[in-house]
Simulated scan of single mutants.
Amino acid sequence: MNAKSFQRLAAALIRHAPGASATEPHLRAAIHQLAATPGKLVRPQLVLAGAMHHGLRGAAAERLACAVEYFHTASLVLDDLPCMDDAALRRNRPCVHRQHGDATAILAALAFINRAYSLVGDALAAEPRSVRVKASACLDRSLGVAGLVGGQAWDLAFAETDRSARTVGMVAAAKTGALFELAILLPATLARPTRAEWRSLRALCLYWGQGFQIADDLRDVLAASYEAGKTTGRDRLLGRPNLAYALGVPAARARLRRLSAQSATALARLTAGGGRRWHYLAAAGAALSEVMATVDEAQSAAA
């Protein structure tokens, strides 16, 4: 997580964005808005570090990282639509559907999803078939009905559930956790992890995904929209899953700290013995834990 990799990825996201000379102007503007206003790029930086560490050459690693961020971007565009969260602000700018209309926003999301699959194929084209099959399975699990799509469906239907903290956690694992799975496990397929390594990697995805979702839940409850950079207060209004509401703010903060400790334990298992196979994740873990701790401290002060 450093300024150099951020700038590299920010430029690559614009360079690899979908588009052609004959692209309809509104669609072209929506795509440019999304590509040119990145968030923190947490996930693609994880992908870039992992892919390069496991032997993927620079240009291919960059494509893989952009693909994961395009999947993430598309999910945000769809999540903000009036039929979903009906948000007004994203990354301190009006949401794409507010700027260019719902139909153009949906088409832009589809364009990014299509480009993302193409980039994954290009990035892994020279890898053995076993790696490509494993990567395909990872994409299906993380993005399909067992992951992001299914999690969004449960998010929309949350008012019809028991609204328990357990259900909130299940939805978070499917939504936010799925994208962390993609960011960690997709490049990890290049290393052909052992079963024990795979279990620790999956645990790490769960802890980081849950932690980031709780941090987001706390922002939705306690931060103003301009502070969060996106529309806040929607979870209560729409009856959506939010652990800060399900448990209360103090208990949500306590769980955030516990998840940070659990992720540190999972990282320690992966890096035990002094080997350097997964050491790049330790650096990412330190940065992510710092982000979660900063959110926790800020929300404690706000409360």
Rank of each mutant, 00 (worst) to 15 (best):
C205Q: 03
Q213F: 12
R234D: 00
R257D: 15
T265L: 15
R236D: 13
R192N: 09
W198C: 07
L206H: 11
G233N: 00
S225D: 15
R236K: 09
T265G: 03
A268W: 02
A246I: 00
Y245A: 09
S200W: 14
Y207F: 15
F212T: 04
R202L: 05
D217C: 10
I214F: 01
R236S: 11
R195L: 12
R253L: 15
L256R: 08
T232E: 07
R199E: 14
R257S: 10
R195D: 14
G209C: 06
A261L: 13
A228G: 04
T194W: 04
G209P: 00
R276W: 03
T231C: 01
R269E: 14
P241A: 05
R255Y: 06
A272Q: 15
D216K: 11
S263L: 02
Q262H: 13
A244I: 02
W198E: 14
L256G: 09
L270D: 03
G211M: 03
D220R: 08
L243I: 10
G211I: 10
D220E: 11
L206D: 13
K230H: 12
G239K: 05
G233Y: 05
A252N: 04
G233K: 01
A266W: 07
D217R: 06
R240L: 14
L206E: 13
K230C: 11
A264K: 09
E227Q: 15
Q213G: 09
R269A: 14
G275H: 15
G248S: 02
D217Y: 07
R240C: 05
L267P: 13
G209K: 09
D217M: 06
T194F: 07
D216R: 07
G248N: 04
R199G: 02
A268P: 01
T194E: 12
L270Y: 10
Q262F: 11
G209Y: 02
R199S: 11
L256S: 02
Q210L: 15
R199P: 02
A228V: 08
Q213K: 07
L204E: 10
L204T: 08
V249P: 06
A254V: 04
C205R: 00
S263Y: 01
S200G: 07
A254S: 11
A251T: 04
Y207M: 10
